[in-house]
Amino acid sequence: MYSVVEFSEDDSVAIVRSSWISPTKKHSAWPPFKNSEKIKKCLTGTILDDDTWNVFGIRRIFYVTDDLLSARKKCKEAELNSEVELDIELKRKHKKTTRYLSVSSEEEDDGHGMNFPKPPKEPGRKQIAEETEAEMDNTGVLVRQTSDISTSSVVASNAVIARHLAKLEEGIKELQLNQKEILERLRSGATATAVAVGYQALSLPEGVNLPCTQIEEIKKIDVWLTVDENYMLLVNHLSYVGGNKTSAILRRILEKLFSNKLAEICNWSGKNGKHKLQDHLLIKVVTEALRRHKVAETATENEIKTVVSNWFRFSKDRDGGRESRRRTIEPTSIQQ
């Protein structure tokens, strides 16, 4: 719906969307653009109004219609004759207009476009307060109280209010989700603390020495892990390893369990004559301790297997292994 209005500040006439006009019919929002293409998009609804737009006082409404072309014609008539009476015309809109609008008299007019006047000066607080004085009905009951409204916070239409309410509702939902997550973390933290106290998770008993340096030590720990309390004790102990990514946490857990020399003779599947780790209880402990972390609780078996396999595969590159091989290769290359 479009309205042809006369601004009270400078007597200029322009087309506005009816949704820009305030419920009192005394103010209208106006887009803060100088580009004619953007103003056209505002009129056709491609760019929606919001509370950042300026609001200006209007003296009267000449014409109301749901057809933009009709509004253009009436706007031209109103510019030539200020005595045009209020007229309301409603038609079924079949197709949106695609003609361009101009905002300067210097631009070409194709016969269908119109020249938009410059928006009037922003009204001051006093003017708005006077125009929104309390209105009384026939019985003398106060209908609306006087409001001293700042131009930067004037709500141009009910649509703007609805958008603000929607944003508030969205913010409330987000706060509720954050509070729920905080409560879950507090509960999980309390549970972890209780388990840690019950099983003395921060320390291991004498006789359990980590990291393992020999295959026999892995087998002894596997036997020790067959007792449920021992199993949970090691899980809790390893769950305190820090990290912000699944792969980083997993590598740090493996470093606590296996020395680098032992890692060189082990792998996941036992290929190439190396010791097979896949079926050890110690690997199951690694998986469970990893999933105690929030960032790794959804880690898949395949992801865990990939990181573990690579950690053992590249064990020769750690502890200076890669640099040592480089130094061995360089003299050979020089002699050649």
Rank of each mutant, 00 (worst) to 15 (best):
residue 316 K to F: 12
residue 18 S to H: 08
residue 131 E to L: 12
residue 259 S to K: 04
residue 26 K to E: 08
residue 151 T to L: 11
residue 285 V to C: 08
residue 297 E to Q: 14
residue 317 D to W: 08
residue 197 V to P: 04
residue 65 T to R: 02
residue 227 V to S: 12
residue 194 A to C: 11
residue 22 S to Q: 03
residue 143 V to M: 14
residue 77 E to P: 03
residue 238 L to R: 01
residue 126 K to M: 11
residue 64 V to K: 05
residue 123 P to L: 07
residue 133 E to P: 05
residue 230 N to T: 04
residue 74 K to T: 01
residue 162 A to L: 12
residue 274 K to T: 07
residue 317 D to V: 06
residue 52 T to M: 11
residue 15 I to R: 00
residue 130 E to A: 13
residue 241 V to T: 12
residue 160 V to G: 02
residue 72 R to C: 09
residue 111 G to S: 05
residue 245 K to D: 10
residue 287 T to E: 11
residue 127 Q to I: 12
residue 314 F to S: 04
residue 243 G to A: 09
residue 23 P to N: 10
residue 82 S to Y: 10
residue 300 T to C: 04
residue 81 N to M: 04
residue 328 T to H: 04
residue 287 T to C: 13
residue 311 W to C: 04
residue 232 M to S: 08
residue 129 A to Y: 03
residue 204 L to E: 00
residue 271 K to L: 02
residue 295 V to W: 01
residue 191 T to D: 12
residue 228 D to C: 03
residue 230 N to D: 06
residue 325 R to V: 02
residue 221 I to C: 04
residue 289 A to P: 03
residue 119 P to W: 11
residue 51 D to G: 05
residue 295 V to I: 15
residue 265 I to P: 04
residue 121 K to S: 13
residue 132 T to Y: 06
residue 3 S to E: 12
residue 305 K to D: 00
residue 95 K to E: 13
residue 136 M to E: 13
residue 276 K to P: 01
residue 100 Y to K: 15
residue 173 K to Y: 08
residue 29 A to C: 06
residue 187 R to I: 14
